[in-house]
Nucleic acid binder design. Sequence first.
RNA 1: GCAGCCAUAGCUCAGCUGGUUAGAGCGCUAGAUUGUGGAUCUAGAGGUCCCCCGUUCGAACCGGGGUGGCUGUACCA
Length: 500
Amino acid sequence: MNKSGKTFRPKARVPKGLRDSSAGMVRAEARMIARIREVYERYGFDPLETSAFEYADALGKFLPDEDRPNEGVFAFQDDDEQWLALRYDLTAPLARYVAENYESLPKPFRRYQTGPVWRNEKPGPGRFRQFTQFDADTVAAPGVAADAEMCMMGADCLEALGIARGQYRIRVNNRKILDGLLETIGVEAGAVHGTVLRAIDKYDRLGRRGVELLLGAGRKDESGDFTRGAGLSDEQAAKVLDYVESGVEATQTNRTDVLEGWARVVGETVVGREGIAELAEMDALFTAAGYGTDRIEFNSWIVRGLGYYTGPVFESDLLLETKDEKGNPVRFGSVGSGGRYDGLVERFRGAKVPATGFSIGVSRLQAALELLGRLDVDDVTPPVVVLTLDANRMADYQAMVSELRQAGIRAEMYLGGSGMRAQMKYADRRGSPVTVIEGEDERAQGVVTLKDLILGAEMSKEIEDNAEWREGQPAQISIPRGELVAQVKAMLARHHPHQA
RNA sequence: GCAGCCAUAGCUCAGCUGGUUAGAGCGCUAGAUUGUGGAUCUAGAGGUCCCCCGUUCGAACCGGGGUGGCUGUACCA
C-alpha cells in the first residue's frame, strides 16, 4: 500500500524490442542451431562460450573522451565504477578471448559460438533488441582459403536448413576492390568515402537511379525526407556505376567474367589488383570444391560494415519472394554475413592477427523460414494426461504416470483443481493424444479407461448432438490396469508410429 | 535521428455534427451435461476510451503538449 492507499500493480509487459518465445519457437530455434552446429563441426570448428557481458572497453564501444560507453550498447557500472556492456555481437568477445589466451591456443584458432546478443537500437518488425547469432571464425589465418571456406560453409548451412540450391546466394566482394574504386575516382578516406560506399550498398534496393542521386546531389524518399549525397562529379559517378553494373549482367554467368569487368575499372590501382587476385584465388577453390554460381557469386554492391572489414566480405541472401500475414511482399535482408577483419585482435595485442568469420542471424533466418513455411513443425508428442478424479487416490495416479514415464512415454497427471470436464479440456488444449481415466467405476472393476483424443476429435466431426456424443463415449476403451503401458503404447503408435 | 499516419476490452474493431450506464465478434471462466474434449445455448469476468493540460453546462470525440505504435528513411559493430 502506498500513500494513496492503493495497491501498486506493476503492468505486466515485455520490454520494448524484446519478446517471449513459446514452446514451438524455442524448439524450432534449437533444431536450427543443431543443424548449423553439425555443419560447423564437420568443417572442424570447436565450440566456445563467452560471457553475456564484457568490459565496455573490451567490446570497443567505450568513448574515452566522454568516459562512458557508446550509444547502441546496453551498459551499466560495476561496484568499482568500471563500465560493463552486454555483448552486441560474438566477434568482439572472440577477439578478447583470443588476445587473453593467445599463447595457449592453437593457431589458426577455429571456434563456433551461438547465443543471444543485444543492441540498444530502434526496434521494428523482425528487428529486436535481443537476437540470436551463430558465428564461426578462423583466427590467425592470413590466406583467402579461410575466407573461401566461410562462403562454402555458409552455403552448406542454408541447405542444411532446407533452403534449396538456387533459392539463396552467397554474395562475395572484396574491400580492396572498393578501395581501388575510390582511389580510381580520386576520393580520399573521409566522409565522402563512407557516403559513396553506402550508396553502392543500396543498389539492390534503390536501383541505378537511386544510387546515382546518392552519389551526386542527394535523394528525397517517399516520406519527403532528404538524404544528402556524396557530391561526386558526373564523371566520378559514371565510373562508380560502371563498376557496380559491370558485375550485374555477368552475375548469373561466371565469376571470372565479373572479375574481368571489375579489373577494367579498378585495374589501375595496386589495391584493386590485389583484391581481384584474392577473389580469383577464391574462385579457384570454389570451383575445385564444386561450388558454382548457383551457390556463390561475386557481387558489386556487397559492402558490409565500414571501418571493420579489411578484405573479402560476403553475405547470404534469400532469393525467394513471399508475402507476410497481410499479403504484403516481403524482402528478406541478408540472413548471414561475414568477412575478413585483420584489425580486431590488434586492439589488444598491437600486432595484426588476421581473421575471418561468418555469422548467421538465427532469429532473422527463423522468421524468414517461418514465412516460407520451411520451419519444421513441432514434432514433440504432447504428454499423455492421467486424470485425477479422486483427490484421495492421488498415489494411484502417481503410480500410473510413473509407469508411463519409465516406459519412455511423455506423461503427466492433472495437477489443476478442476473437475473432469475441465481436465478433458485441459488435455485437449495441450494436444494430448491420450487420457487415462480411472474413476470409481473403473477402480471397482480393476480397469482403466483410455481415451484416444485424436481419434475422438475425428469422430466428433460427424456428430451434432452433444448427448449422443457423450453417451457414445467415442474412441475409448476399457483395459485391465495391468496392461496400462502396453495399451497406451499401442494407442500412441496409431498416431505417432515413428515414436512409439 | 528525420518525415507521414495511428492509439477504444486479451485480440480484431464499431461508436452519428460533443450528450447521460462505452458496444460487437472472437477469446477467457462457468452452467445447461450428478464421470468426458467438439458443436449449440445461457451467464459471468474483463475498460483510467494512451497520458497531461485546455475549450465547453458536458469530451472517447475538439485544441495544444507528451508518450507509445506502424510505415518510409538515415544509422547499423
